[in-house]
């Protein structure tokens, strides 16, 4: 039998500190939100969800998340394809630029929309409204969640040998068919993982949409903006209810991600 070495006091201390740290930082907020939400029972919570502002905020958030995810999935796969399979001058710089949304503060991104498309903006003359509108909010949401699908798909695509595609071509498959039947099954997991991260990021976005949309109640107020305003207005039940819902959604996304990360071994 393999003997398990006894832990030294230093090791026990280290483990204890790390677990405590993680618990305080990660679990405590969730517990706090949960406790506050249901402090007065279930009824006020249910009532909060009938508030037209909450419903409007939820609808707006859902539409932004779905639209941004669809756009970034398509564009992200295309971007990954170009970066992995093609050579062109300035490719390395371009590759690095893809990570720009990770480092630029979302507030600045929102501000750029106002500068560009606001009434006095450089591109203010275009016929449709972008600043302080759904379109502007979508634009910033797309921007901040842009790198995820690309960065998830790139390594899987790079690991795929071009010979698989070439084999399909020699067998008579068109480019489209090859993509659908040969490439997609291999990069599918990467795409899904990227989609989940994109959704999580879009769901939680605050600064960019706040600046770009202006947070007009019932019009450009997303869920996160509603929570912020509700807290300010001392509408605690509303704020906590919506916060809990977003929290639960986030946890579901996290769990989904986890099941994807550890692929089930194929049956023999």
């Amino acid at each position: 039998m393999h003997e398990i070495k006894p832990r030294t006091p230093a090791q026990i201390l280290l483990i204890g500190v790390v677990v405590l740290y993680a618990a305080v930082l990660l679990v405590a907020p969730l517990v706090a939100v949960f406790q506050r939400t249901f402090a007065d029972g279930v009824a006020p919570v249910l009532k909060a969800f009938t508030d037209p502002d909450v419903i409007s905020a939820l609808k707006l958030t859902a539409s932004l998340v779905i639209a941004a995810t669809v756009i970034n999935t398509l564009a992200g796969v295309a971007l990954a394809w170009v970066l992995v399979r093609h050579e062109f001058p300035g490719k390395h710089l371009f590759d690095a630029m893809v990570d720009l949304p990770f480092v630029v503060s979302p507030v600045i991104v929102g501000y750029v929309i106002i500068v560009l498309f606001g009434r006095e903006g450089w591109l203010g003359g275009i016929p449709f409204k972008i600043a302080f509108s759904w379109l502007g909010m979508l634009l910033v949401t797309v921007f901040v969640s842009l790198p995820f699908v690309t960065r998830e798909v790139m390594p899987v695509l790079a690991a795929m040998t071009p010979e698989q595609e070439e084999a399909a071509y020699t067998l008579g498959a068109s480019h489209l068919l090859t993509f659908r039947r040969v490439i997609l099954p291999s990069i599918w997991r990467g795409i899904l993982y990227g989609i989940i991260l994109t959704m999580a990021r879009a769901l939680g976005e605050f600064g960019a949409v706040a600046v770009a949309g202006g947070g007009i109640r019932g019009v450009t107020e997303t869920s996160t903006l509603f929570i912020f305003r509700a807290l300010h207005d001392r509408n605690y039940v509303g704020a906590y209810s919506l916060a809990l819902l977003l929290g639960v959604l986030s946890v579901i996304i996290l769990l989904l991600m986890n099941t994807l990360r550890t692929p089930t071994t194929r049956k023999t």
């Binding site: 040998t161 010979e163 698989q164 070439e166 084999a167 040969v182 099954p185 291999s186």
Partner: peptide, 10 residues
């Protein structure tokens, strides 16, 4: 065409 690394569709 047969490739050195088989290149079957996994």
């Amino acid at each position: 065409f047969v490739f050195q690394n088989y290149s079957l569709f996994p």
